[in-house]
Simulated assay, not measured.
Amino acid sequence: IFLAYIHMIIHIINLCTTYLQSELLQHRICDEHAHALCGQGGKILFQQHDISSMADELLSKDAARLSDDGIKVVKERVLQSAHGFLETTSTYDKVQAFKCPELAAELHRPLSCQARQWVSSNIVFVMTFCVLSAGLLKILWSIYQRRALSKRAEQIYEQVCEILEDNAVSAKAGNSECEPWVVTSWLRDHLLSTRERRNTLLWKKVEELLLEDSRIDQYPKVIKGEAKVVLEWQASGSLSGKIKKLQGAAGKTRSGSVGAIKLAEEICGS
């Protein structure tokens, strides 16, 4: 019984060794084929002596655990398994050769090689997708810029209204030397940053909003010998201030209002 048990263990070891070595041999042959498919100088066709040499190289690593007879048996089984897996073909000089199946070789290709070959075979689709994606991104960016420009123009427009309204109230106060109008270019240079001044569309959008506002008059005026365009608040009362109290202005709006009041005071002082 003990000897039968020992023989069974040896048989199981031989089977496992055969399976592992067969898988390694097939893997190496398919790797060579995959490198050839990727243009990396691999080998596709293998003759009998090539496969036998590869099997000897693999089995030499386990020689210490197998007898000579065991190595011979395992090698025969490995070669039989490899022959059953590989495809048989002929070389240009009618010599029998073996190769990894095309499907298995393609699966052994590296991901980078697969991606490169997929792009090459679908170049029209890839180019079309890239062009459409670039066009879509450009459209989305243009929409975002227009919305950002409109939002910033509305913020500046509100500040201009606050400045003109506060300036008009100060001009009507008794013993005040403040003029009821404000030069347009002064407001532009004060409210716009240096970078924003380069964007001519921003102030143009602000001017469009000012022209649509019936509470504001815009007319030419000669100041110190130079022709200027001035803005003047014509509405009575402080309607915008009441609306802001009802709506609850945000922190930025409140800080903008304080800046507007200070600028109005500076204009009156000057």
Rank of each mutant, 00 (worst) to 15 (best):
V73M: 11
D217E: 08
V229H: 07
L137D: 07
I243C: 11
S150C: 11
V131P: 02
V182N: 06
H11V: 05
Q21K: 08
I261M: 13
Y92R: 13
L211E: 04
I261A: 14
N175Y: 14
V169Y: 07
C30E: 01
H190I: 01
K242L: 12
A36Y: 05
P220N: 06
L210C: 05
R197I: 13
N175S: 14
C30R: 00
I143T: 13
A264N: 04
A235Q: 09
A168G: 11
P110T: 03
G269D: 14
I13T: 05
W181P: 00
D166P: 00
I29H: 01
I216H: 02
G256M: 09
L107R: 13
Y19A: 11
Q234V: 09
A34V: 02
W141L: 11
I243K: 14
A264E: 03
G84V: 02
R65S: 09
E158V: 04
V131T: 15
N175L: 15
S238L: 15
T194K: 09
N122C: 14
G42V: 00
Q155S: 08
I223F: 08
S257Q: 10
T89L: 06
L187M: 13
W118M: 05
I163A: 11
E212M: 05
A36H: 07
E158D: 10
G225H: 07
S238Y: 14
G42W: 00
K205Y: 03
V229Q: 05
Q40F: 06
K151I: 13
C100P: 05
W203S: 02
E212Q: 04
D50F: 04
E165F: 08
A134G: 07
K94S: 09
I71M: 12
G42K: 00
P220V: 07
L202T: 03
S185T: 10
A153E: 06
L191M: 08
L20M: 07
L45H: 08
L107A: 09
S170V: 07
S67P: 00
L201T: 06
I10C: 05
V229R: 07
E179Q: 09
H49M: 10
I267T: 07
L86Q: 01
V131Y: 10
W233D: 01
N122I: 10
F85R: 10
L58A: 02
Y219A: 03
V119S: 11
V258L: 09
L263N: 05
I143R: 13
Q80H: 15
F129I: 02
I44S: 03
W141C: 06
F85M: 11
T200R: 06
R77S: 11
L192R: 06
L24R: 05
L164Y: 00
K262D: 09
G42I: 00
E23L: 14
H35E: 11
L187R: 05
T194F: 02
D93E: 13
E212C: 01
D166K: 04
K99N: 04
K75F: 03
G269Q: 14
Q40E: 12
I123S: 15
D31A: 04
F129H: 08
L107S: 12
V124E: 14
G84K: 02
R215G: 07
